[in-house]
Design a protein around this nucleic acid. Structure first.
Length: 409
RNA sequence: GCCUUGGUAGUGUAGGGGACUAUCAUGAAGCCCUGUCGAGGCUUCGACCCGCGUUCGAAUCGCGGCCAGGGCG
């Protein structure tokens, strides 16, 4: 179900098989919380050769309901989606005040931000919800502490996560067994991933990984990261995670979505990613390109007739100008969101594709460095531009204020 | 020609003698966003048409000018 085909030092490319087919790693999953990637249709995803998305089991459980999803034949049919669908358990929603009431030993008390209704979710219930939704990959219900929480609380969350992980696995196996009680083969059932916690404390992360690695999950995620901690911490935690979790299982780094960080994580052997970062940034006018980060909303692009990325051959870059997309974004028009998002995901999909190629050729580090250089170059140019503008601005302001003083006298 | 409204950041506005260091939106500049309920958050910049007067004090009241609407000849 997970077959490593190529290795380049710690980086690797593999084939992940699910009940919906096989895809190559490493890959990035755009976030489709409510069953759609915002502003992007499943046909769009297909046209950019996207292979996987992740939805949110808890949000879908609230609306339209997991029984609804079951009735309509599962999320993939519902979405008319061709690829692999993963669902997040909802553990991440604990992170948000709008959802969480409190966690207990048994499960999580949530409130619905839609209508204020209260819900109690246990690990077992969560597994049933994800089964009803019919995703290809389910995630364990984990207990996710805030980064700023005390070490003690993060430590408790580690224990809680492990305990719930065991319960998830037992119940999930039941739900995925045939009549004789035997677990179905991995290509005919939903996969289940465990999630390590521990914040950025090496000892806690290690402990979490050690506990979880004893459970026979189909894959292991690193959770609670990419939430504002320094990059070096993030990578350190990934190293610990990778060092303990079995090599022959997929490694999913949850929440990561910035291009350079993705490459750095791939270099350390991570296989799967998801994040709202690229799509959210696209909607807010920060565009990833072969030439680094493009801040599209700057006035300097008001009349720009270039495509978002001159080296991109996506549908958007072939047809639309920066000026057009910038204007549509500024007007909060759906078309702007759609075009920016399309390019962004196309770019990331290509980045993953190129990463796999580079791993096959054993040139991944060179490839990574090339991309990083482009981003650094763009950042440096940007900084220089800002400095120049500041100087100009100061001169201008000075002359204006002098002018005012004179006119008042 | 006479009468009558009105002139506040780039734009649209609030405020009709002291609470104005002038509101809000938009804009511009910057920072942020990473298992998405949300088309978001934060910081900064930017204006009382001009002059004279009344008053302790004027964006606010008076007069004149300029400009823009509207009405009557």
């Amino acid at each position: 179900m997970f077959r490593i085909t190529h290795k380049d030092k710690r980086a690797r490319s593999a084939i992940l098989s699910t009940k919906s087919g096989s895809i190559q790693t490493p890959f990035f999953m755009p976030v489709a919380t409510k069953g759609s990637v915002k502003y992007i249709s499943s046909d769009d995803l297909k046209s950019m050769k996207n292979t996987a998305v992740i939805s949110n089991a808890f949000v879908l459980y609230l609306r339209p309901g997991d029984s609804f999803m079951k009735k309509v034949g599962g999320i993939k049919k519902f979405m008319h989606y061709h690829g692999i669908n993963a669902t997040d358990s909802g553990g991440f929603q604990m992170y948000k005040d709008t959802f969480l009431i409190k966690t207990t030993h048994d499960g999580v008390h949530f409130k619905s931000p839609f209508d204020g209704t209260k819900h109690f979710v246990t690990p077992e219930k969560d597994m049933e919800v994800q089964m009803n939704i019919g995703s290809d990959i389910a995630m364990c219900l984990d207990s996710m502490p805030l980064v700023e929480h005390s070490k003690k609380r993060i430590s408790e969350a580690v224990e809680q996560t492990t305990e719930w992980a065991k319960r998830c696995k037992i119940h999930h196996d039941k739900l995925n067994s045939d009549k004789s009680g035997k677990l179905k083969p991995s290509n005919r059932r939903q996969l289940l991933f465990g999630i390590s916690q521990g914040g950025t404390y090496p000892d806690l992360r290690k402990k979490s990984c050690q506990q979880l690695s004893k459970i026979d999950f189909d894959g292991f995620s690193a959770g609670g990261l990419a939430l504002g901690e320094p990059k070096q911490k993030l990578l350190q935690m990934l190293r610990i995670h990778k060092g303990i979790m079995p090599e022959d299982k997929p490694c999913y780094l949850m929440g990561l979505g910035s291009p350079i960080e993705l490459l750095e994580a791939i270099e350390l052997g991570a296989d799967m990613f998801d994040s709202r970062f690229p799509t959210q940034n696209a909607r807010r006018g920060t565009i990833f390109t072969s030439q680094g980060k493009l801040r599209l909303m700057r006035k300097e692009y008001e009349y720009d007739q270039m495509p978002l990325d001159p080296n991109c051959d996506c549908m958007v870059c072939k047809r639309y100008t920066r000026a057009f997309i910038r204007y549509q974004l500024s007007q909060q028009e759906g078309t702007g969101y759609r075009l920016a998002t399309y390019h962004q995901l196309y770019y990331l999909t290509r980045l993953m594709e190129q990463s796999r190629e580079a791993i096959k050729k054993k040139q991944f580090t060179r490839f990574k460095n090339k991309i990083i250089k482009a981003y650094e170059k763009a950042d440096a140019e940007n900084e220089k531009k800002l400095k120049d503008n500041n100087l100009k601005g100061k001169k201008k302001r000075k002359s204006i204020s002098l002018g005012n003083k004179r006119s008042k006298k």
